[in-house]
Each structure stands twice: as structure tokens, then as C-alpha cells.
Design a protein around this nucleic acid. Structure first.
Lengths: 128, 128
DNA sequence: TGTCAATATTGAGGAACTTCAATGCCACCC
DNA sequence: GGGTGGCATTGAAGTTCCTCAATATTGACA
């Protein structure tokens, strides 16, 4: 296995119409959006993203995350890989350590796909 | 562990207060948010929400959804149950048919949890 | 070159989930 | 009341996913 870093794959959620727009999702669009949501629909991965954002410099190394999460190092590495390959996190090696940080705009894409489309529905103003 | 500036000794998990300055998710919060995301992280359920929202009157009965989705009736019923019990959909029986429609604000809650522009993953989702 | 620390990968066990056939339940109509 | 149509539930098969032990890989350093 070559020691190269995997290329960052960006989310392609926005190729489909927002969830609450007038045009329904086709099968392919639903599959893509579901895959993007599945990346975050996991407690350990949510905590990883949250922990990274909570750092003063908005980045964290694997050892720190492993310590805080209380999971084994391979498990944390697995989740980081999922987050990296889905385009949520970026990584950079410095000496012995690998630092992960958020990819700007990755979550905003998901929020838009969930219906941030100017539709009046989700504003919560239509109550009673 | 990576080198830190001052103090020289590594902080333990309980000591690392400065590293967690942005109120990261605790375990329970991560579980709740992951459960809420898991409800939508499924192509069939995404299509159901999308199809309902695409109806002129913003509601659909099971038979119509079953027809469009190309899934068996028990499978569609199962997904509708998941969406209903998680608070995404509401249902109402009229004669022989059961109509499902969106619960206003259900998705807005999720979008907020994903970080309404700049505050990612803060706050909580109350539905499990 | 050899050793050590940090991270990645592999493989397996087990839990959770999707799906459908079969069946049960409920409302309507004769 | 009996029959029918629409929907819900049950049970099982197959798949996906999380997790960890074991192992491999990489970079730093003597």
C-alpha cells in the first residue's frame, strides 16, 4: 500500500434539490444525501467534530481524541477516516502526529440540503 | 503526544479544560443528536419526506407513497413509523386511509444542531 | 541501522438496521 | 354480521456498521 494520503472527497449533497423544496428527491439524490447524513449520524463522530471545534486552534490530533472519547485507537482512527473521506475533516501530518480539522462549509452543505431553501415551512412561524 | 507550550507535562483528560473551550457534546447529547440524524440518514425516509413536501396539500397517504417508492407496503409502513415516532411526521386517519404530513420545525431543529452558521454542533435535540 | 511512539489497516464478533412474506387490526359497505 | 380494502405488526433473512485485538506502517531519533 503506497504511503500517500487519500484524496479529499467533497460532499456532493447540493447536486440534489433541498429536502423541503417542491421537487422530490430521486433515488440517486436520496442515496447521496443519506450517505452524507449517515457520516454524522454516529455519536463518536459527532463528538469528534464537536471536540475539534472546541479546540482553541480548531484542530486535534488522534491521541488527544482517543484519550477524551474513551474508545480504542483503531476505532477512533476508523471514525476519522470516515469523516476524512466524506469531506468533513481535513488532515495534516506533523512529525509523529496527525492533526484533523474541519473542512469549511462541509456542514453548511448538509444544512442547506435539509431545507434551507427559502421555503416558509421550517421557520417555525406557522405554529398555532 | 504532541508538544504543548506550557505546561511541559501532559494534561490528563480531567485537566484539559482549556482544550474544551467551545462546549463540546457530551455522550448523552451526542447520542440524542445521532439518533435524530439517523432517522433521516436513510434513502427511503428522505424520499418519503421529500414526496410529502412535494404534494400540493403537503400530505400523502400510505398507498400513494408505496406506489411511488417501489417498496413493499410493510417496509413503507415501517419507515413511516420511524418518522412518526421521532417527531418528523404527524399522521391522521380519514376513513380507510392514513395521511402523513410534516411536523413544522422538526427539520429546523436538526439544522440548528448542525450549526446555524458558525456555531456547529452546539445545543441539543430533544427528540430521540 | 535499530528502536520507539503515533497512527493506519486487517480481520472477526456482535449489534443494529432494512426488507419482505405472512398475519392481524380497523373502518367501511353490502 | 360478513366481506373487503387499507394499514400496522411480527418474524426472519441478509446486510451494514461499530468495536477491538493484532499487526503493519510511518517518522523521529540515537
Amino acid at each position: 500500500m503506497p504511503p500517500e494520503e487519500l484524496p479529499t472527497r467533497r460532499l456532493t449533497v447540493l447536486d440534489c434539490a433541498p429536502l423541503l423544496s417542491g421537487t422530490p428527491l430521486d433515488e440517486a439524490g436520496a442515496d447521496r444525501l443519506a450517505a452524507a447524513l449517515r457520516v454524522l449520524a454516529e455519536p463518536a463522530r459527532l463528538r469528534i467534530v464537536s471536540l475539534i471545534q472546541a479546540q482553541p486552534d480548531r484542530e486535534a490530533c488522534v491521541c488527544h481524541l482517543t484519550e477524551v472519547l474513551g474508545l480504542s485507537q483503531p476505532t477512533v482512527s476508523h471514525h476519522l477516516r470516515v469523516l476524512f473521506e466524506s469531506g468533513v475533516l481535513a488532515r495534516e501530518r506533523r512529525a509523529n502526529w496527525v492533526y484533523y480539522r474541519m473542512v469549511p462549509g462541509a456542514l453548511a452543505e448538509l444544512r442547506q440540503a435539509l431545507g434551507e431553501s427559502g421555503q416558509p415551512l421550517a421557520g417555525g412561524v406557522t405554529r398555532g
